[in-house]
Design a protein around this nucleic acid. Structure first.
Lengths: 340, 340
DNA sequence: ATGAAAGCGCTAACAG
DNA sequence: CTGTTAGCGCTTTCAT
């Protein structure tokens, strides 16, 4: 048989170290946190003994005893969407790994509001939750924020710390780009119609109307690429096929792209395509997706910073930090074909 | 100014609930864990009072008191590589979110062995670490496993729970596919030369030699796409340019692809390309990357299951679970051009 | 500079 | 069925 399992059996505690050195537990505690009031000599002796015994501080017990909550909860909607991975990298940039545990809770793109996911963070006693992005209606988010402080990423909720990008500006830039190329039949594939996630769609509609055109919106059933593919199918097979499609995000754009090629349509010759997020996929040679960049990494970093600030200062005024996205024009957009 | 911040100030504890109902703390504890020995009546009263007061169980304190360690640590090398996101999804499938906190620790593709990342997991007192993938040499991994049980994902370490894919078989299939198409100048872009990550390279070399050919390996400096791009540059600009390249992973393949197109080379006409991971990118129309699928989601799920088993039974024999990858042939590979 | 004692929120024997 | 008593590993007054 294979040898038995790994792992220690009698964990070493501060008391063990204290006994070894012949001092009190208090001193060990002080020494490890670099608190003042420990002579250099004893401190050294303590650190040495600790290493010898293999002592590892217990951050969880420390939090409990100090009534602190140094853990940061991270709620992510859907890891298959690269934008969430980017946000996570950004968060990681802001949060020092050695000081704040990052407790992860992942929902799934097809799932409705996931109370279990938030509950698990609350019961893990995180000091704050960075949420990207909650699908709940605003009033529910505010209610949740009454239980645990929340930083909303990529969404603005009144009364709750929010770090987001100006979706209306991004969608306007995208739509205007297509209008500028001469398109008139421009469709939009929106996400599910949750509150707080309608900025892109609304701004698209307004921009179309301002141009004297009729908006055409199809809402995908969920945030998966497949849902977008199905939504695109209805668009591409219907009468008066659009000559351009602007999608809620790049993942959706990928779905449209597959749907188009499956029907023998070429991008951008038969169909111009604009995504949102400017994820890595958009930049690949041969994809060359025109897309709105909302600077997801930077958004994540800002959210991480806001979270740390909130942890330090629970009574500071609510953070409301928006940033401007920018349109990156690539090869997936072109003027409509003359015969269209 | 904006209104003050969110969050409760005096957290509700079991004691509060007990007082409210007029029972002991023990009963509240029992009621919440569904333990036997609580009358239906009191249980209901307790649950009601708890809801009324807004009581939330403290999973951290529970762990401490019960000397249990229900938290699972997740060490991920690099979230920009989709394979790690896939592994994470798989882990999530196996681990019920409401019972086991998932504590995340992310390293970075360019970083060397990240002791800080592992330390943070140890100090968070996780019961087990799922590691995908540690760059440390085998003996260091074994040493770490003496402090906290580890499940190695996508890598086998003797004496440590390991859930992995047969890299040698995958690399052989990839190389033989290229040989079968008639290629003779087949190069390989390997990752950095860490112990435990050499199976693909070695198997490529053996397969080449068995075919009477000379292997040509370039090791990327780190696991980033850019490093692969640089490695590919030297390959594509050197004399006797290879007609095919097999890369350590899809991210590398993407780097090669960019390097090729930047030099006016077309895939697969001028260069056949095989990746590894069969990530979503490989499946995109226009990328169509031939790639070895190691079933990352399934790997993650198996790792999650193994982790839960180990948590339950620390003394069970070491897990050694390998699975077979399979080659997915797409449009990025073709016979070499006749003039080559 | 050092230590004793109380307590964080919870679980776990052990009694009744 | 219900309550009492000790802790878990650590921090934190408050003394000395």
């Amino acid at each position: 048989m294979t040898p038995p399992a790994q792992g220690p059996h009698r964990p070493v505690t501060q008391a063990d170290v204290a006994r070894e050195v012949g001092v009190s537990r208090t001193l060990v505690s002080f020494a490890f946190r670099g608190a003042p009031g420990v002579s250099g000599e004893t401190k050294q002796a303590i650190l040495d003994a600790a290493r010898r015994l293999g002592y590892r501080p217990n951050a969880v017990a420390a939090d409990l005893a100090s009534k602190r909550r140094s853990a940061v909860g991270l709620y992510l909607l859907d890891l298959r969407n690269e934008v969430y991975a980017d946000i996570l990298s950004g968060v990681r940039l802001a949060i020092p790994q050695n000081r704040n545990r990052l407790i992860l809770s992942v929902s799934h793109s097809t799932g409705i509001v996931d109370h279990v996911a938030m509950d698990s963070l609350i019961e893990a006693r995180v000091g704050i939750v960075i949420a990207a992005t909650l699908l709940n209606p605003d009033h529910e988010v505010r209610e949740l924020a009454g239980t645990v402080p929340i930083v909303c990423v990529a969404r603005r909720v009144e009364g709750v710390d929010s770090v987001y990008s100006d979706d209306r500006a991004g969608a306007r830039a995208a739509t205007e780009h297509l209008l500028g190329l001469g398109h008139t039949r421009i469709a939009h594939i929106a996400g599910p119609l949750y509150e707080g996630h309608q900025g892109r769609r609304q701004s698209y509609e307004e921009t179309m109307r301002s141009a004297g055109l009729v908006p055409q919106v199809v809402a995908a059933e969920d945030y998966s690429q497949e849902a977008a593919e199905r939504a695109a199918a209805s668009l591409l097979e219907g009468p008066d096929r659009p000559t351009a499609v602007f999608t809620h995000n790049d993942q959706f754009a990928l779905g449209v792209r597959e749907a188009a090629y499956a029907r023998g349509l070429t991008i951008p010759d038969d169909l111009s395509l604009v995504g949102y997020d400017n994820s890595r996929i958009a930049r690949i040679h041969g994809i060359d997706l025109t897309s709105v960049d909302l600077h997801a990494v930077e958004l994540g970093r800002a959210a991480g910073t806001a979270a740390l600030d909130r942890l330090l200062n629970p009574d500071a005024p609510v953070v409301d930090r928006s940033s401007m996205p920018h349109l990156v024009i690539r090869g997936s957009t072109a003027p409509p074909a003359p015969n269209n």
